[in-house]
Structures are given as C-alpha cells and as structure tokens.
C-alpha cells in the first residue's frame, strides 16, 4: 500500500510560539485519519502544512511521493487545485454564489472544461441536487457543510483535509456529515485527514492520533497504518 502523506519532523513556529514540534507521520492511501487534541495543540497547523496553505519552518511533507515543501508558491497553488480538497469548520463558502457555483468554482479555477456534470454529480453525492441554486446563507449549517464537501470533491482530489468539519453542527447533523464522509472515503478511495476533538467524529475514523503541544503523543505515527483498520 502506498503512502499518501508522509511528514518528517515538521516544525512550525509563529514567532516564539512553536505550533508544531517535529511531527512525523505516515498515512497510507485510502485511510481516514483522525487527529485529536485540545485547542492549540497544533491539529489545524498540521493539516494546513499538509494541504500546502501553510509552510513548515522545518522538516518535509510529501504527498503521494511529491515533496510539497520545496515547491514554489505557484507550484503549490497548482498542486492544491487538483490534488487536495479542503473542508473548513466555518464552511468558507462564497456567500454570493449558489451551491452549484460554489462547487463549480474550484473546477473553474483549475481550468476544467466540462464542469456542470461533475458539479451536479458532487451535489448529488452529498444529496443537495435540489438545492443547487440556493445560496449558502439560505441553507442550514449541515447543508452548507455538505456543499463544502461537494466543493472539496469537485476536482477529484486524492487527499481531503477536513478541519473540525462538525465543529459548528449539532449531533444529528454531525452524524449525517460523518456518514457522508465515510461513504466518500470508502467509495472514492480518498485519503481523509480530519482534525477534531469530538469523540463522536473520531468514532468514524480508521485510526486516531493525538496531539499535544505540537507533538503527536499517541497513536501510530511512524509505521504505515492500514486503511479501513
């Protein structure tokens, strides 16, 4: 089984604050890895560094065998367009765009030609075809998060990064979203890294690592994990 994400001793410091302190991690393809820990433990920073929207101060990050730390900003941007999808805690949808347009947006940015079919497919996957023309503020939190997931899947990424995806949702809605993610990981073979401190959320993942003060303190950080395990 090939490795989807491999980090080696990555560190990230913001001034005197060390958010990551030499995190080493290997995640095989198709695994749903949960990263748990308290606020400020470094979960989001780890995901940001793996997703290429933040750069580690030291160490390496390889995704599907490519070192992303050495990439230029433009290379990193292009890589992000097709290889990775993001789901944020606060949804981060564009309020002036409809659900369909939000899903279509990354494809448009990536220069995809036939966008409509894929966008509707993604919306269908998250069960929001009927809401395609609605704007985010007209939707519930769960619906917005589904749109965000559909958007993250639009460019068929191999890696999905979800930062507290159920943080702003109630339990029932959270279950729906987590079930949806489970289905996607299983059906699409996507590797999913999800940060959360919610035990409910972590009950859906293949495996969990725990972070504290920028370090992985439990779990199986070094050896390859088995997907679905």
């Amino acid at each position: 089984m090939s490795i989807a994400v491999e980090t080696r001793a990555i560190e990230r410091a913001y001034g005197s604050v060390r958010a990551l302190r030499g995190v080493t991690l290997s995640v095989p393809e198709g695994m749903w890895l949960g990263v748990k820990g308290r606020s400020g433990s470094g979960k989001t920073t780890l995901l940001n560094c793996i997703g290429g929207i933040d750069r580690p101060t030291a160490g390496t990050v390889a995704c599907f065998g490519r070192d992303i730390v050495g990439m230029s900003d433009l290379e990193l941007t292009r890589w992000r367009r097709t290889e990775v999808g993001f789901v944020f805690q606060a949804f981060a949808l564009m309020p002036t765009l409809s659900a369909y347009e939000n899903v279509e947006l990354p494809m448009r940015i990536a220069g995809a030609r036939s966008r409509r079919g894929r966008a509707m497919e993604c919306l269908d996957l998250v069960g929001l075809t009927k809401w395609a023309d609605h704007r985010p503020p007209e939707m519930s939190g769960g619906q917005q998060q589904r749109v965000a997931i559909a958007r993250a899947l639009a460019n068929r990424p191999k890696l999905l990064l979800a930062d507290e995806p159920t943080g702003e949702l109630d339990t029932t809605t959270s279950k729906d979203i987590l079930a949806l993610l489970r289905r996607i990981v299983t059906a699409e073979g996507i590797t999913l890294l999800m940060s959360s401190h919610d035990p409910l959320a972590l009950s859906y993942v293949d495996t969990v690592v725990e972070m504290r003060d920028g370090e992985i303190v439990s779990g199986l950080p070094l050896g390859p994990l088995t997907a679905g395990g």
Binding site: D73, T77, R78, R81, F86, P106, I109, A110
Partner: peptide
C-alpha cells in the same frame, strides 16, 4: 480578506 483566503486555498494564485 476571508474570501480571498478561501480563493487562495481553492487554488487561485497570488497573481490571479
């Protein structure tokens, strides 16, 4: 600013 951050995360380059 937030909107721009999202667009950057979605793959819009700095130039774009």
């Amino acid at each position: 600013a937030i909107e721009l951050g999202v667009l950057r995360a979605l793959g819009l380059s700095e130039g774009q």
